[in-house]
Computed example of a mutant assay.
Amino acid sequence: MSKVPLTVKGAEKLREELHRLKTVDRPWVIGAIAEARAHGDLSENAEYDAAKERQGFIEGRIQEVEGKLSHAQIIDPTLLDADGRCVFGATLDLEDQDSGDAVTYQIVGEDEADIKAGKISVNSPLARALIGKYAGDIAQVQTPGGMREYEVIDVRYE
């Protein structure tokens, strides 16, 4: 597995999720399985089947999160010195050239991406178009709605 880029905040969120999965969700589902088992015949026990399915999901997610954390390349945006260049972890102020709308995005790892919170995945078409650009540069992005152009107004490392 290749390195998984994460910001410090993103890595902390994954650690919190892993802790919750192991200390809250896993014990709960074990209790639910025991309770369903106590009801008798397992062949026609929907509660047991649901609890076992949930257990499989939790165990799979624990493995996935542990794998991502073990392969994480944690990047602290505040320690970056990219001379004003758009890089992973940077926060960018952009202006849509067609509409004139101003937007702010931070380039983050896939697991951290949340467009409503202004976080775009490093693998998204927009982030790929922005990587390497400086303030004043224009990035062209192919979107489902057609070609869009964004001017990089400011690059910050927060």
Rank of each mutant, 00 (worst) to 15 (best):
Q140T: 14
E95S: 01
V122D: 12
D93W: 08
D154H: 05
V87H: 03
V108W: 00
R20N: 14
E110H: 06
Y150K: 00
L6E: 04
A113R: 00
E112Y: 02
S70A: 15
L126S: 06
L69Y: 00
E44A: 14
C86I: 10
V8N: 08
K3P: 05
S124G: 13
K119F: 11
D114C: 06
E110Y: 07
I58K: 01
E110C: 03
L18G: 08
L80N: 11
T7R: 04
L14S: 00
I30N: 10
Y48T: 05
L79D: 11
R20Y: 13
P27C: 08
E53I: 06
G145W: 05
G118I: 11
Q97Y: 08
R148E: 05
T7G: 02
W28T: 13
S43E: 15
H39C: 04
K68C: 06
A127R: 00
T78S: 12
A46D: 15
A139G: 12
A38Q: 12
Q97W: 07
G100K: 04
S70F: 11
G145N: 14
T104D: 00
W28C: 03
V65P: 05
G40R: 07
D25H: 09
Y134V: 10
Q142Y: 05
K13S: 10
A129C: 12
D93G: 13
D25P: 00
V29T: 09
A32W: 01
W28D: 12
P5R: 12
S43V: 13
Q63D: 14
E12M: 11
D41G: 11
Q55L: 15
D76E: 04
K116R: 11
L79Q: 14
Q140L: 09
T104A: 12
S124D: 12
V24S: 12
D154T: 11
G89N: 03
V65W: 01
G67N: 15
S2R: 05
Q140G: 09
D137K: 09
P125A: 08
G84S: 07
D114P: 08
G100Y: 02
G31P: 11
D111H: 06
A38T: 10
V103W: 08
G145P: 05
R156F: 03
A36C: 06
Q142H: 10
V141E: 06
L80R: 05
G60V: 02
P125Q: 02
I120K: 02
D83M: 10
A135E: 09
Q55K: 12
A102R: 13
L6N: 04
Q63I: 08
G31E: 14
Y48I: 02
L79H: 10
T7D: 11
A46R: 13
A129M: 09
E149K: 15
E16C: 04
A90Q: 07
Y48A: 09
L79K: 15
L18Q: 08
K13M: 13
E151H: 03
L69T: 07
A72D: 12
